[in-house]
């Protein structure tokens, strides 16, 4: 009897272990948490610091990932285009430098200098913010709109539909989403997927 019980328990544990819990995180329509993260200039940055912003293009990105590198110039362009319209880019590096040395704070500073980032490039020290958002890869975009109830998620996903060749892009998802918000229209699509580097926590 005992053997059967033990076997049953073992089976139960095995079955339970086989189902990995889906990653928690925000869905479109959720209110996103604010944070206080260190920028490459040494200052702490929160969304609440931006009194005049209409929203934020929050992008989890990093130094080492080839996809992140491929999108670097496009991220800079997004900030240049939309910060003046009230939607600045807020870049966050979610990776643990102990797992990915290229994503250290010092190298983030270096990269931001080299590429003359016009937006904050924040370090998710302790990797605490990205799981709340549900970011799984770099780059991973969360577009937020400031409302009375907080910063509401309006779009989650990719920047556009061609990582490899900016000139071959057909759909600029983030641009279309911000333009829709600026024009008081609904965002479509609200979610897209892209290949990216898994976050190294």
């Amino acid at each position: 009897m005992k053997t059967i019980q033990t076997f049953g328990l073992a089976l139960l544990l095995f079955v339970a272990a086989s189902f990995s819990t889906p990653p928690a995180g925000y869905k479109v329509g959720d209110v996103a948490t604010d944070f206080k993260l260190k920028n490459v200039d040494g200052k702490m940055v929160s969304l609440s610091d931006y009194k005049n912003a209409k929203g934020f293009i929050v992008i989890f990105t990093c130094n080492h990932c080839p996809y992140a590198k491929a999108y670097e110039d496009r991220i800079i362009a997004l900030d240049k285009m939309y910060a003046p319209k009230g939607y600045p880019v807020i870049a966050i590096n979610p990776n643990n430098p102990e797992k990915q040395a290229e994503d250290s704070y010092a190298l983030m500073q270096q990269r931001a200098r080299e590429k003359k980032f016009t937006f904050p490039y924040l370090f998710d020290d302790g990797q605490k913010i990205y799981p709340q958002y549900g970011a799984t890869k770099t780059p991973h975009v969360f577009l937020l709109q400031k409302t009375a109830k907080g910063n509401v998620i309006k779009y989650i996903g990719a920047i556009d539909d061609n990582h490899e060749d900016p000139s071959a892009v057909k759909e600029k998802y983030v641009e279309a989403a911000v333009n829709a918000l600026l024009a008081n229209k609904s965002v479509t699509p609200t979610e897209t997927k892209a290949i990216g580097c898994s976050i190294k926590a």
Partner: peptide, 20 residues
């Protein structure tokens, strides 16, 4: 096939796009 949004769900709807 750079337009990953068009095929990631066809591999599996659970896939966020991160590799491996």
């Amino acid at each position: 096939d750079p337009d990953a949004n068009s095929w990631i769900d066809k591999v599996d709807p659970e896939w966020s796009g991160a590799i491996p």
